[in-house]
Amino acid sequence: MDKLLKDKKAIAVFVLPAFILFTLILFIPICQSIYYSFCDYDALTKPTFVGLKNYKNLLIDDTMKIAVKNSLFFLIYSCVTQLIMGLILAGLLTNIEKGRNFFKNVIYLPCVLSSAALGLLWMFIFSPKLGINQILAKYGIEGPLWLMDIKNYIPLPMWVIAFVALWQYVGQSMMLYMAQISGINKSLYEASYIDGCSKVKSFRYITLPLIKPMVATAMSLNAIGSLKFFDLIFNMTEGGPNKKTMVLATHLYEQGFKYFKYGYASAIGTILLILCLLMTFLINNVFKTENYEM
């Protein structure tokens, strides 16, 4: 193995396919997209360079304001709830013997299902003519218009969709935390119990500090996932009513594929890229940790 790693040619041969693929389908399109964000481009005619016009327009775009607000809401909501729910579930599941695998699978299941199908499913559940409101009506309660009520600053549909997203993705955070927890040496816990530590305290003083690096990873994944969140929203509300549930990705999609303003859509994409980089940078700095021997 060491011999192989010293062979520069071998390294090059192994890295090359991934490198080419990465460059072709990721790096070049990103650069292209950044270039287009400075152009007027509708795919039917050649792009014309317009400087910062697209970015200036973004500043006065009302839908963009809604999209940024909703995306940030989504980011904060899912970072906080996924962290708490993921940790609780992971903590509970590592401590039970019976049914651990069963619950692990059940909780993780929505992660592997198609978001488009889940979006439709939940849309039916929250539709006023089917689903929850019909059940509520049986008890004489008039349910709210879950996906249509847009009176509040953060409209009800955003809360609903954020809840569905939590349900769908909490399994992923849970798995990450569980993997990290199961890597902690059992003797640490044994030592703490001998010293008279309770389960809750051992979770607080042993588990939490030791899984901190994973918290940073899970949170970055979460943050990026929620910033580029698209499918559930597109399938449940399409950004409506009246654009009140638009997020950055749906706004980008609409501008690009409905109005064919590829230049403008690329500018939104670039902003999204910058936001994602910024979030990763922030999270990695906040959770600066040294690695413990486990």
């Binding site: 990103i30 698209f230 999609y253 859509a265 690329s266 670039t270 999204l272």
Partner: peptide, 19 residues
């Protein structure tokens, strides 16, 4: 991060993607 964000750009949403 770049790779993951780009998966949006290059994948479904992508128009950034005009990319």
């Amino acid at each position: 991060t770049v790779a993951m964000t780009a998966s949006l750009l290059a994948g479904c949403g992508s128009s950034g993607a005009a990319g």
